[in-house]
Design a protein around this nucleic acid. Structure first.
Lengths: 239, 239
DNA sequence: ATCGTACATTTTGGATACAATCAAGCCAAG
DNA sequence: CTTGGCTTGATTGTATCCAAAATGTACGAT
């Protein structure tokens, strides 16, 4: 997560979004300022400022005299977000293809190996024990973030980096995670998509790398939408 | 500008960014809370919240015990922003090509006529009176925004719309404006680029429209960077 | 029993008050 | 003349206070 070297308010915003991501404050729920203030042992003032930041980032919605509620994206929001993300990461890798260093490619290879390993373990764990298949999720997420992180880094475009991260911040990440970890075949599909990306970037083939990347993300988006719809709509604020 | 049906804080944020765009608070200047509070006849509390929003949107930077300063983008920031904007508006028009209605195309045509007219007047006015060439700038900006606005609208992707607008909010808009209104040839070049976009979208040719749009914006970006560098660096915060 | 209304409680919004931190200017020493 | 530290003033950061709005509840009417 973007841990900007800030002061209280910034870190409060980060901690609140962490809790939202973790599901502690589910979509649609109200974030009462006094409760948050007590939870973090501060007064309401910095809480309010943190909530304003989250509002600007699109994590929560602010209703006039009702305070902040956690946004509950519908299928359309997810589709929109993934369309944009596919485009942005496509640009990122297309830029990266020209400037990426051998050391960065090596980091991507390492991340990819870890990623494949995590998927294997996830699938194996689910077969033997359907009850606790989530032990290897952190490793899965970490290696995936590393893989995409190198690409964004290598693009050399800081604004692009920030926008992709903000986009990732919403609920899209959680939904993708939930959608993917449900199905072994899809997880392996994901691994092979990374493989294709890695191969293209290794040849510094910008056009091919972009094609592979946008396909990868659009496909993930389809899965996320499909998963969201199959879940029955989450309770959320009126739009 | 996006006048979200908000309450005080939102409108304060809008008004402050307007003033920043208008050059009243130049890049690098500190925004003192008490002064803003007096100016808008409110207390510091809502001012602080508005500043937090602007911080999250990347309009100002917040230094620990120093408050907010207006961001002064350097050439690289501008280049980065235009690269992203070209990509996003390229996606927008590529989506729009499929779904745009005849009525929307007609609005683009009207905007284009107004745009061409404004450019003519701007150039003529500068020839006869070099002192006041800026009378027709509002019409120029308005028609340009309308032209691009229809495309974004027709894309049918709300997230995309919001991101493009946020991107536009930074200083990129002012810089583009300053760069373009300096040179008649470049303004006419701009008109013909719009012409090309309009032609492609009229045929619902997504690929061609995207090509024309990204070219248009990347070219504007080049001009902005060139202008910024020719101006000598604006004073700004350390990075 | 259900709907509507009035009232009480809760919660947000904005203003004010106080504490903490930083910057600028000043004076003295080298 | 420059450099170092210190003091003072200004500005931000946090907490508290009061008013306005909204929600929830109880009661009464249909």
């Amino acid at each position: 997560m973007a841990a900007s070297a800030e002061q209280l308010v910034g870190s409060l915003a980060d901690r609140i979004s962490e809790k939202i991501l973790a599901g502690e404050y589910p979509p649609g729920s109200r974030l009462r300022q006094e409760a948050l203030a007590e939870e973090f042992s501060v007064s309401r003032t910095p809480i309010r400022e943190a909530l304003r930041q989250l509002e600007a980032k699109g994590v929560v919605q602010h209703r006039p005299n009702q305070g902040a509620i956690v946004l509950a994206p519908n299928a359309r929001d997810i589709r929109d977000a993934y369309q944009v993300r596919a485009e942005l990461e496509g640009l990122a890798i297309s830029l990266a293809a020209e400037w990426i260093t051998d050391e960065q490619i090596e980091r991507m290879r390492r991340a990819q190996r870890k990623f494949a390993g995590a998927v294997d373990k996830l699938i194996a764990a689910r077969k033997t024990n359907a009850k606790a298949p989530f032990r290897n999720v952190p490793s899965w997420v970490e290696s995936n973030d590393e893989f995409h992180g190198v690409v964004i880094e290598a693009s050399g475009n800081r604004r692009l980096k920030q926008m992709i991260q903000d986009l990732h911040l919403g609920f899209t990440r959680n939904i993708m995670l939930a959608a993917l970890t449900m199905d072994g075949r899809r997880m392996r599909e994901n691994v092979s998509q990374h493989e294709a990306i890695l191969s293209a970037i290794g040849r510094h083939d910008a056009a091919e790398a972009r094609k592979a990347m946008t396909h990868h993300i659009l496909r993930s988006g389809e899965l996320a939408v499909w998963w969201l719809e199959s879940q029955g709509r989450l309770v959320g604020p009126a739009r």
